[in-house]
Design a protein around this nucleic acid. Sequence first.
DNA 1: CTAAACAGGACATAATTGGTCTTTTAGTGA
DNA 2: TCACTAAAAGACCAATTATGTCCTGTTTAG
Lengths: 134, 134
Amino acid sequence: MMELTRKGEYAIRGIVFLAAQPTDQICLLSDIASAVDVPQTFLAKIFQQFSKIGLVRSYRGTGGGFVLGRPPEKITLLEVVEAVEGPIIPNRCVIGEGICSRSNLCNVHPVWISVQDKVRDILAKVTLKDLAGL
Amino acid sequence: MMELTRKGEYAIRGIVFLAAQPTDQICLLSDIASAVDVPQTFLAKIFQQFSKIGLVRSYRGTGGGFVLGRPPEKITLLEVVEAVEGPIIPNRCVIGEGICSRSNLCNVHPVWISVQDKVRDILAKVTLKDLAGL
DNA sequence: CTAAACAGGACATAATTGGTCTTTTAGTGA
DNA sequence: TCACTAAAAGACCAATTATGTCCTGTTTAG
């Protein structure tokens, strides 16, 4: 339970590698993929998702590639994980009050809220700077 | 991410219902299933898993059914969830030291350990007594 | 014996995961 | 402008997992 998928694992490996490179050095997707041992086509999808929300910046054409969208200490593990795995939701009824039709009976509800908060809290406190060992 | 499956949700609903019944009252699976709105055949599988590890006790034959295996305050939400969903493991490399081949490079590792510990901690503090409103 | 009730395995179907492949778009340099 | 390079985007596909159903036991009370 609560397991990160491969996509999430690859995402972290990829962006941490990028964070560890010299600032503003444009990295080829192919280089990142082989460095962190992830299928390039799959990593491409992941970096597209990063790019859309600004976690990385992409450059096309010759000399193109990827750089980090912000300084490593401004990107949290929570952002990275949620970018590819979606929001951290331990149980559907955590989504909103109205959704859980048995919410008044449901004493489990606050427990999941608590889990969600705590996990988000832990992940939000870790930045790419920490992970890249900078 | 980190989402409980239906199986886990059903498991909780089912056993919480059982915990709310008068002590030592033998409950029919069919009654539990209809009360908590879960397909009976599916719930049967779940209760089999509970039975194997003693969370519930089953009686076969006429007049058979299920009772809680222990007093509700002695059964934690963690046990219930792990019984059907397996252990709480946010990332594969949390399983063991040797498994994560990049463990020396892997600064993410301690974060997952921390997540795992915290989640288990929260779930272990909630019992069926709390959930059943006893 | 018979009907009630759980046990356990085989099977079915749909969704999700984990990819690949192809085409398009954008930028570089000759 | 032309050729080349590299990411973007979307179609496609295989394997796995989730979510059940069904059928055949086996146990037990009466």
